[in-house]
Simulated assay, not measured.
Amino acid sequence: MDGTRTIDMVARLRSLAAGGSPAEKRLAAIVLDSAETASAAPIRALAQWADVSEPTVTRFCRALDCEGLRDFKLRLAQIVAIGGFSMFPGPIHRSPYDESIITSVRDGAIGAIQRTAATLDMTLIAKAAEAIAGARQVVAFGSGGVSSMGAVELENRLFRFAIPVTAHTDGQMQRMVAAVAGPGTVAVSLSSSGSAPSVVEATQIARDYGATTIAITEPGSALAGRAEIVLGFKVPGDGVVIKPSASRYALLTVVDVLATSVAEAVGPSALEGLRRIRKSLAALGMSNSDRPIGD
């Protein structure tokens, strides 16, 4: 078997649990119910738990496209190690009308914002804001769901102050844009994990060519090690995999604090851009003094 082949063992296990032979159904149910235990169990134990013979366990492993028990246990252990709770989720018991859903999302968002606000270093925020306010151009790099959204949101915040800014979420574009950066360019890289390869590499490329590099990321991460100014945040998961990650709120907190600090650094001229935007939208009937400008 090709050792580089990617096997979705979870999907295959569920398929056997639903439509395999009686022995396969019992073995698959055992593994899905207790994946960590099964990954360490000897063949004799697996056979006894499922009331099957040891050769049947071996055939079961091969039905999962594994070479044998050892390969099966290795692959299963790897799945468990990268997040067994999400690979083998428990049943959802709550009603979609349950108000505890609101509470869960609300508390996660509030907790993420409070944790992030309490740990932000305003000295570093001010340093980053001054660099952005004086930049010839700003580029924002983000890859993945939360971080790409954050890069686009940073662009959405900064253009209002007449700062030339573009967001890039494509890895190849990030590298190309970084390669033509230089003194006068500020590269702001966003990654909740700090390990997105394209963002880490683009940050280093931009820095090599003289750009000022700012990272909004997890402290101590690979991305943090490549940037000159690190605006760190970290929000641990709560294990509720069906709920969107609260790290979105943490990242947007940093973006909003940074954007507000940039406006302060730009000074009164920042208001002129906002005035023009409101005037432009008024012609479309979309501007109202009680509403945010352009939101």
Rank of each mutant, 00 (worst) to 15 (best):
A11K: 06
L16S: 01
A18V: 02
G20N: 09
A23I: 05
E24D: 13
A28Q: 01
A29P: 00
E36P: 07
A41L: 05
P42S: 12
A50P: 11
T58H: 01
C61A: 08
R62E: 14
K73Q: 15
K73I: 01
A77D: 04
A77H: 02
V80S: 10
A81H: 02
A81Q: 00
I82A: 15
G83A: 06
H93C: 14
Y97A: 12
V105G: 02
G108K: 05
A109I: 08
R115S: 09
A118H: 11
M122W: 04
K127E: 13
A131V: 10
V138W: 09
G142Q: 03
S143M: 13
G144N: 04
S147K: 02
S148N: 04
M149V: 08
A151K: 02
F161S: 02
D170E: 13
M173P: 02
Q174D: 00
Q174I: 04
A179M: 13
G182D: 11
V186N: 09
V188W: 14
P197L: 05
I205V: 15
R207W: 00
R207N: 11
T213H: 01
I214Y: 05
A215K: 07
S221K: 01
L223S: 08
A224G: 15
A224P: 13
G232W: 02
F233Y: 13
P236G: 08
L251R: 00
L251G: 02
L252N: 03
D256N: 11
V266P: 06
V266N: 04
V266I: 14
A270Y: 07
R275T: 12
R276D: 12
I277R: 10
S289C: 05
D295G: 11
